[in-house]
Simulated scan of single mutants.
Amino acid sequence: MDNWHFYFMATVYIIAGILHFVKPKMYISIVPPYFTNKKGIVYLSGLVEIALGVLLFTSFKTLALWGIIAMLIAFIPVHIYMLNDKKFEKVAPRWVLVLRVPFQFLLMFWAYAYL
């Protein structure tokens, strides 16, 4: 049986996905400029996060875990963009922006640990 950390992880992804719909402007602002249809990307990524979080509670758990890892890889350009654009230094201190990149890999490892 999975421990509370697993259920916490699933809940975090569901809540993060919901926030894409509650605060879309915040997410739209961090989508790199080379992507078109930023609003569509934000809503799609929110839907994916919610779906993967929910799927963790089903027999599709393994697929969801691989999906989370793939999603986190796909989000890396956002973190690199935020790290390289000075406008985000108003949002968070530079050290926070730097730590977000390796944090993605920590989140990937967390998901991988349940495979």
Rank of each mutant, 00 (worst) to 15 (best):
M1G: 09
V31M: 13
F35S: 08
W66A: 00
E49R: 14
K38D: 05
W66T: 00
F105A: 07
Y13M: 14
L115F: 15
M71F: 09
V91D: 09
T36Q: 12
Q104F: 01
V48A: 15
I80P: 00
Y13H: 09
V12A: 08
I18M: 02
L97N: 12
K87C: 07
T36K: 14
V31R: 03
A64T: 01
I73G: 03
M26Q: 07
L72D: 03
L97G: 03
I50F: 12
Y112M: 07
P33H: 15
I30Q: 10
F103T: 11
L63V: 10
A16T: 14
H5K: 15
L83P: 00
K23Y: 06
Y34S: 09
L63W: 08
N3R: 11
P102H: 13
L65C: 01
I18V: 15
P33C: 12
W110T: 02
F105M: 12
G40R: 14
I69G: 02
V78C: 03
H79L: 03
A70V: 02
L55C: 12
K25W: 07
A111I: 02
P33D: 15
S45P: 12
P102C: 07
V101Y: 06
L56P: 05
W4R: 14
F105W: 11
W66I: 00
G40D: 10
L72V: 04
P32V: 12
V42E: 04
F75R: 02
T58Y: 11
G53I: 05
R94C: 06
V91G: 04
V31T: 14
G67K: 00
W95A: 07
Y114P: 01
F35Y: 14
V91H: 05
R100I: 07
Y7M: 11
G67R: 00
D85E: 13
Y43D: 07
R100T: 07
F109G: 13
K39W: 06
V12Y: 10
V96Q: 11
I18N: 01
I73P: 02
W95K: 08
F75I: 09
M71L: 13
K23P: 02
S59W: 08
Q104L: 13
A111N: 01
V42L: 06
H20E: 06
S29D: 11
I73K: 02
V98I: 14
I28Q: 05
L19V: 05
I68V: 03
L83I: 03
F21L: 04
A16S: 10
K86T: 10
M9Q: 12
N3W: 15
P77Q: 08
K38G: 08
P24V: 00
N37D: 14
M9V: 11
M108T: 04
T36M: 10
L115S: 06
I50M: 15
I41H: 11
F6V: 11
M108G: 10
W4P: 03
P33I: 14
L115D: 08
H20W: 12
A92I: 09
I73V: 14
N3M: 08
K87H: 09
V78K: 01
